[in-house]
Each structure stands twice: as C-alpha cells, then as structure tokens.
Simulated assay, not measured.
Amino acid sequence: MQPASTRGIRRFLRGLLGGCALALASAAQAAPLVLAYTDGQVETSYSNLKAFYRNLSAVGLGSTYGLTVTGQLHQEGMNDTTRQIIAFAKSKSLPLYPTVSDYNQDIAAFDPAISHSIVNSKALSASTIKQLVTLARDNGFAGINLDFEQVEPRNAKAFSAYVKALGQALHAQGRKLIISVPPKLDDQQPEYLQGYDYRALAAAVDYFQLMTYDQVGPGWSSGGFHGEVWPGPGSGLDWQQALLAYAVTRVPAGKLLSGLAAYGQDYSIGNRVHWSAYEEIIAEHNAVTHLDAPSATPYATWGPVNSFTDGVEWTAERAQPVLWYDDAQSIRSKAALVGRLGLGGTSVWAMGYEDASFWSALQAGLAKAPALLPSGRE
C-alpha cells in the first residue's frame, strides 16, 4: 500500500489533469469554425484546398448542387474539380457540406419561384427533404448547406417551417444543417429580405452563415452605407458591424458565421477579381492606393473616379478607374469581429480566389478568439 501522502499527491494530480481536460474540451467547443467554400467551377479551388486545408474546420461544396422549381435535386455543376475536392476533403477527415441553392441556370440568377413552389407544397417539401437527407447520407457528407437567396416576404412562415422540418430530418440521421442567409439591418429593412425570419431559422439550424459581402458592386450600394453610391467597399467593417449587431439579437452568437470575401470589384471592367490578382492589377495601372476609414477597406485608383447612385447600371461608358479590395489589415479587422462578438466562426467565399497571405491574415484576426479547431473537427 502506498503512503497516504503519496496517494494524496496522486489524487491531486489526477484532479488537476481532469480539470485541464475539461478546460481544453470547453475551449475546443468554443473555438471558431472556419467554413471555406470551394468553387467547383474554378480549378484552383482544388489546388488551394490541398495547400491550405489546415486552416479549415469544414468545407462547403459551392457551385455544384441545386433544386428546381419542380423539386428535383440536381448536380449540374458537378465536374472533376468537385470530385477531387470531395475525395481530398474526405482523405483529411474534413466535414463536407454540399451547398444546395435556388440558382436557376436558365435565367442565370437565383430564382424566387423555386423556394415558392417547394415551401408551399407539402408533397414537394417532403420530397426535397428526403432527397437532401439521402444526398448527405449516401455520400458521407456532414450535412447540408441550404442556400436559398431569393425567398419572398410572403413565404417567410412557410420557409421557416420548411427549414425546421429539414433540420429535424437531418438531425435524426446524425447530420447538421447550415443555412446561408442574406444580411439585413433590422426586422423591416430591406423590405425584400423579409422572407428570412432570423429567429425562427436560427432555432432550426446548427450554423447560420450570414453572407456579409457584396455591400457595393457595379450597379448597387446596399444597406444604407457609403451614401447609397457605387463604386465602394465590397464588405465594409462598419457595415459588417451593423449587420452582425442586429443578427446577434436574433441568432445565438455561437451559431453565427460571419462571411468574408476573397474577391474585390474592378470597376474598370465591372466585374469581380480575385484576391490573388490584386497586386498585379495595381501594378498594371500604376495605381495609387488609399484607405477608406469608415469601412477599414483599401481601394486603388488610376484616374478620377465618378460615383453613381444605387441602381444605376454599370456600362462600359460608366467604367471607373478604381479597384475596391481587401488587404491583410482589413481581413484581420473583419475576422476579429468573431472574437469580439463571440460568434461561432467565419465563412469564406471562396477557395481558389485567394493565396497564403489571405489565410495568414484570417488566422491573425481570429487570434484573440479561442484556438482554431484542427481540421476535421467541429
């Protein structure tokens, strides 16, 4: 028999180790999730996943799956790139979430008719939920990411009921539901986003991915910021703060993912450009760089820039010599909101657009939050 003093020391050490284990488990549960979307239509999405997967907690399969107005699940975007992404993510035990959207290839836009027909039909609701659960189960996916971006205000209750039923069906199979939701500033504005009842949707899902990007672009200026004119910031810090401040009053902060874009807007061509191309564009035009203080967002100009009001269409005649983009500092500032607000984590659109410097900035921004989960853990 061991001396009493020895037994006491051992009990103390066991208790200490047990306490440390509980503390580590608690920290792991609170660690921010990093959901990175892959864009299956961009080949570098696969190569970047291979290069930077250690920065991720989960992978969203973007630009691949969708539902039709008749309730048919399709995979029109499936290609070799997405197949490689799926195989690699599984090899690294990274949870996979197929993004299932209401995008209609025939009109090249998100289509409100799709959600309207599905959520207002018991038969279509049941059928699509069955198809989505089967998709997740048969492919070994961690769950489903529902990305309906054109839900009409008249369908708010029906959409919430549909999401609740989908969540219950997935949970019964041990799988999760992530919902991607357009951002709004309050319960009333903007009016066209009143199809999204944040509180009801949040109660039904595991993660609530808020699409805090595309604030300003060629032809639009969203959310009452930046004077309702374009060109302007793609996702300003002030704009994000306002959106998230509202969201956390409706969504449990631990479920909320703030969105970061790995692309900017080149208003000389009226289109998106990727993070990895910013330096080349700036050098090509011998541009002068600036910082917009309210949005904490940089921009680069190579001539006088005119502004246009929200809704004025971009045309070649209205092309402007300016690039609005993010740099390491602006990404750090926006990622730091996760820790400041106690959010569940962040999401990135999209892999294949970025390079190593993006992930370094993201990690630095998350540094004040609990340590990033190792890959493959949620």
Rank of each mutant, 00 (worst) to 15 (best):
G66P: 01
N120W: 01
K176W: 01
K90N: 06
T70P: 12
A89M: 06
T68K: 03
K92A: 05
F159L: 02
D102R: 06
L132M: 14
N139W: 09
L166E: 03
A142M: 01
A109K: 07
T81V: 15
R83A: 14
Q72Y: 05
R83M: 11
V59M: 14
N48H: 13
L124A: 08
I178V: 15
A161P: 03
G174T: 04
G71N: 07
G167Y: 08
A156N: 09
D111A: 04
F52E: 03
D80F: 05
S93E: 09
S63V: 14
G71L: 08
G77R: 02
A113F: 05
Y97I: 07
Y162K: 11
F52W: 06
G140K: 04
H116T: 14
F52N: 07
G62Y: 13
L135T: 09
S93G: 05
S93M: 06
Q105P: 04
S45D: 03
N55T: 07
S91K: 12
T68S: 11
T64D: 00
A126C: 06
P98H: 04
L166N: 06
A87R: 15
L124C: 08
H116F: 10
Q105M: 02
T64I: 11
A123G: 04
L56C: 07
P153M: 02
H116L: 03
Q150A: 15
K90L: 10
V133I: 04
S127A: 12
V151C: 02
N48M: 02
L146G: 12
I129C: 10
V69G: 00
G71I: 05
A123R: 07
I129T: 09
Q72N: 12
S115P: 15
S115Q: 02
T128S: 11
Y65C: 05
G143E: 01
S47H: 04
L177K: 10
V133G: 00
D102H: 10
A89T: 10
P112Q: 06
D147A: 10
I86D: 01
D80W: 08
P98T: 06
H116K: 14
R54M: 08
N79T: 02
I114W: 02
K157H: 11
R54E: 15
I118P: 06
L166K: 05
